[in-house]
């Protein structure tokens, strides 16, 4: 009993013209608002400053000169000098190196560690998951700054400890988002299909689920990088950051505080640098979120 062998036409489906790939569609959606581009521009300027600091900075950021101390903005020292006669502009440019480096490295570490923990926790569920998410919620309930202060106070102020402290405060956010997204993703049919192909848990988690949740993680990472830079500035401001004479933005704001009334620029200019990076990273994060939001109009 077999069906009459009708000549079945091949599915009437034309080969699609090479459509814009996923990345290009993403790019088009992301750049439509312009916010992402503005944000990228702001962040890029700061990153270029950090990379090319020795070429851009008009003066040596560590060269002291009593004769030129506490000058206002002028043609030689564009943003003035501090109480040791060091050029404020050069110190801000060099400060970008530390601030961006700390922000980037600590966020990157937090992403790697937090996402790995979150995916494993969400994928396996059960007792391990309850333990991890319980501990995670506990960590999240601590204010980051307090946590950062405690860690640096215990280990002593240095750039490494600063990175460690910021990383630890940032991990819970990534554990949470990775866990939640993984739980949603592991119920999808393609995960069953992977299991039917005999793929092991590790491959399913990191080769199949991870790429599917990467966009949410990227959005969160760009927002957290802003937070990390702010935390770095705050810890430096209260004296728990990189030890002097290293120029960091938080440290510059604090140093300027002693002469706030005479030379307000000493604190204001580095604050503006912090502000630009924060706004830039937030615009990038929001732009990426809009671009990857499946509910957004295409």
């Amino acid at each position: 009993m077999s069906a009459p062998d009708l000549p079945l036409p091949v599915e009437p489906e034309a080969v699609p013209a090479p459509r814009p790939g996923r990345l290009r569609a993403l790019y088009q959606r992301a750049t439509r608002s312009g916010a992402l581009l503005v944000g990228l521009a702001m962040v890029s300027v700061m990153i270029l400053c950090a990379i090319f600091a020795p070429l851009i900075a008009p003066h040596d950021p560590y060269a002291q000169s009593i004769l030129h101390k506490l000058q206002g903005p002028g043609p030689v020292y564009w943003l003035g000098t501090d109480q040791f006669g060091r050029d404020v502009l050069s110190r801000i440019i060099y400060g970008a190196r530390i601030s961006l480096f700390v922000g980037f490295v600590s966020t990157a570490l937090a992403v790697v560690i937090g996402v790995a923990i979150g995916i494993v926790s969400g994928y396996f569920g059960g007792r391990v998951d309850r333990l991890i998410s319980g501990a995670n919620d506990g960590l999240m309930s601590f204010p980051q700054i307090i946590m950062g202060i405690v860690i640096v106070a215990l280990l002593g102020p240095s750039i490494h400890n600063l990175i460690l402290a910021i990383t630890i405060t940032a991990i819970p956010a990534f554990v949470r988002i990775a866990r939640g997204s993984t739980i949603a993703m592991k119920e999808r049919d393609f995960v069953d299909a992977c299991r039917a192909l005999g793929f092991g848990n590790g491959r399913i988690m990191f080769r199949h689920i991870l790429p599917n949740i990467a966009d949410e993680i990227t959005v969160l990472a760009s927002l957290w990088m802003a937070t990390a830079i702010r935390t770095e500035a705050t810890l430096s401001f209260i004296g728990l950051g990189a030890p002097p004479p290293i120029a960091t933005w938080g440290g510059l704001v604090r140093d300027g505080f002693d002469n706030l009334l005479d030379s307000p620029g000493l604190s204001i200019f580095p604050s503006i640098a912090i502000l630009i990076v924060m706004i830039g990273l937030n615009l990038v994060g929001d732009g990426l979120r809009d671009a990857t939001d499946p509910r957004a109009p295409t």
Binding site: R22, R188, D189, F190, D192, A193, C194, R195, A196, L197, G198, F199, G200, H208, P211, N212, A214
Partner: peptide, 27 residues
Amino acid sequence: EKQMEKIRGDAVGMIFQEPMSSLNPVL
């Protein structure tokens, strides 16, 4: 489970009801 992973997709193949969602959308 480890031995079974070698069998699935190798000695025995399986296809599902939902072709729309059984492929990984980002690969």
